[in-house]
Design a protein around this nucleic acid. Structure first.
Length: 874
DNA sequence: AGCACGCCGACT
DNA sequence: GTCGGCGTGCTC
């Protein structure tokens, strides 16, 4: 309203504002992020909130809004009573999709932070926070639009045409009219050949298209039965029933003494009565049947023996006290709990959570997906009972949604789950625990490429919550931050637990030099030491875990005549032979083709299989130890739902002697009779082109070694390797994290890698190499230019990072170079790496350069993937 | 992402 | 002379 308008009386009585006021209505506008992940729509759009929806719309609501010609799902990210736009141009919010907003203002802020930090569209970040069941689904509805007689005069031609509708058209109109609105898909199913007629009817305006957001939140409904009269009446009426209605009589008597409603299913089972009897009585009006929403509880009917807090050891107490104090102060703190395997970290978690709950606050527990086993869940369910919601990928979409719903409705105060559980919509968050914080699975590989650890710290800092990062082998980034010296990042507090509970010794570790074995004439994949050890375990009826971080049968297949290696035609990677299916498979694009009988290149039949995979180890075990019972666990045997747990249960029940698998056998398993762990080839990870290769090797070896001798029986570990002197292997064999850390930090410093700098990886992919090189080079130039113009100083020389002072800002773009796997699914891949240190908004700079590339992306089908790894400086 | 509006080739 | 190609731009 203008100033003049405010002083002129006539204007005061004009306009929608006043009209609204007269009817006691408030003007309310919602800022909505719509479900279109594109640069141009990556901002809020304003909508009018109609009066009847005002009490339902809040920041965090999921709404259906008209957007251009269609209706889209969107999230409300702001509410206000004014708008910067001409209010006359605004459209109204059409639908509110949930009774309770699925997000809250804090999560909406977090999404904005994520979109900036990880360079993604805001809608992508918002979508990542809600369960898949709430993902938008759109539906075209056909509705009846009005009588043709309403057409204005003068359009007689049109009318005449309309009156000439065919009987089939009449049928369609009648059908739609009767139903009110019909999904277009359903209509075409009913009238399969009607698409042309439908188009005519739509053009004539007799029918209309309505786009709406289909509501996928299907709460499960169950029928409940209860008495519809008082006890006396029920008994009285029971007597009046005929002798033939024996079941009904029974039911009446039962409900006379049953004031509470009962689920129909339970009733029919308990009283051995058919639903028909209930229906008959309901029709007579003596019973009432209602629909009730229920939760699909995947743990329904399972009894969890209640456990009480265990007395803490001195060491556990040493860790618990500072956490407890921070909780008490309601202060945001991050603790790094460095505890060797078996030191009792879980009990510290449990008691910290208990304290958090006692304060009326809520807790999130993140665990790697793979260790989200029934045993793990059981420990939490046993302590906190129904206050726990469990979220993992093995749940059906509906189950997942129901668990999640319990958070919003305050039925639970603890969530345990994998990565995405960090977004649990709690409003009084007090504690976030991240178990095995070094695990790579906390990093999401698709957009938004977030790291759950970083998101957790971000969330906690806004809520005054405590974060506990637990690990036996903390990531260098986290460990470095306990020594933080930079001004703008607060340090993590280190808590250490060095001893195993009850003083159980760490297992003895033998490093086996495979070169020596070869010299001695042992060409088998098992060293003599490991062979003997397995044999011994078979005799003693103890169990063995074998780790080989490579699935399939053999890693590559080569022709010995010409040296041809069978490769994937779509990816630059050799194919792996799978014995079970007798196929060659690509582990990157999933291609599967029959094994070659002769060399595709020279037709020779001298084809040999090189490299060992889990399938081959399994076969070999069977040959060496006839009758041995082996469970193989890798992606190929655990893809089926519940297979993972089934295999572990079998092993636990001692239905197998050996558990053989890829890294998934290394994580968090705890079997009392496992006394031997064998690592078939420790170097598989070590030589990957990854600056974290040594760290990953150390972590993997330490984790898997921790699987042996966790209970009464002492454990033994064999690590087979061709590089027995490598520091990651040597230090892992001594369970010596401190020494590993020291050496690895020195390596990182020399090479200029995290935690001495932050990294961002930018990958480009395209079907043609020239395009890719041009784009990558142009990107790098523009990025360097941006840095220069920011006036932050000259880019240092290459390698200049080494030995630089702690506070010196640094920025360098490396590349573009071909990616480690130069082609996947027929697309070539190049990458640039940005190394920097200091408080530089690199994400912002990259986002701007990427935005300038948008046209290229559209026209040339160039794909730019940006992987932001905000690391920690030392 | 869709969808409309807007300037240049092969057709009634 | 028109129908239609997809290049640019907008969606509260």
């Amino acid at each position: 309203m203008t100033k003049e308008g405010a002083t002129a009386p006539s204007a005061l009585y004009d306009g929608a504002l006043l009209q609204g006021d007269l009817f006691g209505e408030r003007r309310l506008y919602a800022q909505v992020i719509v479900d279109v992940p594109a640069k141009q729509t990556n901002r809020p759009f304003d909508y009018i909130v109609p009066p009847q929806l005002q009490s339902w719309v809040a920041v965090g609501s999921r709404v259906g809004v008209p957007f251009g010609p269609r209706t889209l799902q969107g999230f409300v990210v702001g509410m206000s009573d004014r708008t910067s736009m001409d209010a006359g141009k605004l459209k109204p919010v059409e639908q509110v999709l949930d009774l309770v907003p699925p997000l809250n203002p804090e999560l909406v802020d977090l999404a904005r932070w994520m979109s900036r930090t990880y360079i993604c569209h805001e809608i992508t970040a918002l979508q990542a926070m809600i369960p898949g069941a709430l993902k938008a689904k759109y539906e075209k509805m056909i509705a009846f639009a009005g009588e043709e007689t309403h057409s204005p005069a003068g359009e007689t031609g049109r009318q005449a045409y309309m009156f000439a509708r065919s009987p089939e058209e009449e049928n369609i109109v009648a059908f739609v009219k009767q139903k009110g609105a019909v999904p277009a898909e359903a209509l075409l199913r009913r009238f399969p050949d009607a698409s042309l007629m439908l188009r005519n009817l739509l053009e004539q305006g007799i029918l209309a298209e309505i786009n709406s957001v289909k509501d996928r939140m299907n709460a499960k409904k169950v029928l409940y039965v209860e008495a519809a009269a008082d006890r006396a009446t029920m008994l009285e009426q029971a007597e009046k029933l005929g002798a033939g209605a024996k079941r009904q009589k029974e039911l009446m008597v039962f409900f006379a003494g049953q004031p509470e409603p009962l689920p129909l299913a339970e009733l029919t089972e308990k009283l051995n009565i058919s639903a028909g009897s209930v229906k008959a009585l309901a029709e007579k009006g003596w019973l009432s049947v209602q629909e009730r929403e229920v939760y699909r509880d995947p743990y329904a009917g399972r009894q969890f023996a209640k456990t009480e807090p265990l007395p803490l050891t001195d060491q556990q107490r040493g860790a618990f006290v500072p956490i407890s104090a921070a909780l008490e102060e309601r202060e945001h703190r991050v603790f790094l709990l460095h505890g060797v395997t078996g030191s009792g970290k879980t009990e510290v978690y449990l008691q910290s959570i208990q304290q958090c709950l006692d304060q009326g606050r809520e807790a999130i527990v993140l665990v790697p997906e793979i260790s989200l086993t029934p045993q793990m869940v059981e420990r939490f369910k046993s302590r906190f009972g129904d206050a726990v919601a469990v979220m993992h990928s093995r749940l059906s979409q509906g189950e997942r949604y129901d668990e999640w719903r319990k958070i919003g409705t305050k039925q639970v105060s603890v969530v345990i789950g994998a990565r995405s559980a960090v977004f649990a919509p709690f409003t009084k968050l007090g504690l976030i625990i991240i178990d095995e914080e070094h695990e790579a699975s906390y990093k999401q590989e698709e957009s938004p490429k977030y790291h759950a650890r970083d998101v957790a710290v971000q969330r906690a800092s806004h809520q005054g919550a405590v974060v506990v990062l637990g690990s036996a082998t903390p990531s260098l980034e986290s460990y470095a931050r306990t020594n933080e010296r930079s001004a703008d990042r607060s340090p993590f507090q280190l808590l250490t637990m060095e001893d195993r509970v009850e003083g159980r010794p760490l297992p003895a570790v033998h490093i086996v030099d495979l070169r020596e074995e070869l010299k001695e004439g042992n060409r088998s994949m098992f060293s003599r030491g490991l062979y003997k050890a397995i044999e011994e375990r078979l005799h003693k009826k103890e169990q063995t875990v074998l780790l080989l971080n490579r699935r399939g049968y053999s890693t590559f297949v080569m022709c010995r005549s010409c040296g041809y290696v069978v490769q994937c035609p779509h990816c630059d990677i050799s194919l792996t032979y799978h014995q079970v299916s007798r196929t060659m498979r690509c582990h990157y694009c999933g291609l599967s083709e029959p094994e070659p009988k002769k060399c595709p290149s020279c037709e020779s039949e001298h084809i040999r299989y090189f490299g060992t995979g889990t399938q081959r180890v399994e076969e070999e075990l069977g040959k060496l130890f006839p009758g041995i019972r082996v469970i193989r666990m890798d992606v190929d045997t655990t893809s089926e739902k519940g297979a993972h747990e089934r295999l572990l249960t079998r092993f636990r029940n001692k239905q197998a002697d050996v558990l053989l698998g890829t890294q998934m056998v290394a994580k968090g398993l705890d079997f009392p009779d496992v006394t031997l762990v064998g690592v078939i080839a420790a170097d598989t990870v070590l030589h990957l082109p990854d600056f974290r290769a040594a760290e990953k090797t150390f972590q993997l070896l330490t984790q898997v070694a921790g699987r042996a001798g966790r209970h009464k029986l002492p454990g033994e570990v064999f690590i087979q390797t061709y590089t027995p002197d490598h520091y990651s292997i040597v230090t892992a064999s001594h369970h010596d994290y401190a020494s590993f850390l020291e050496t690895e930090l020195e390596m990182r410093r020399e090479r200029g890698y995290p935690p001495y700098c932050d990294l961002v990886l930018i990958t480009f992919s395209h079907e043609q190499v020239p395009m890719l090189v041009r784009a990558g080079e142009s990107f790098a130039v523009r990025l360097k230019d941006k840095w220069k113009r920011s006036g932050a100083g000259p880019a240092p020389e290459r390698g200049g990072l080494c030995g630089r002072g702690v506070d010196a800002p640094y920025f360098e773009v490396y590349g573009p170079v071909a990616s480690p796997i130069p082609r996947i699914k027929d697309r070539y891949r190049f990458q640039c790496m940005v190394k920097y240190r200091g408080d530089i908004d690199v994400s912002g700079m990259i986002a701007e350069v990427a935005a300038a590339f948008d046209d290229t992306v559209r026209q040339e089908k160039l794909q730019i993937g940006i992987d932001v790894n905000p690391q920690v400086l030392m």
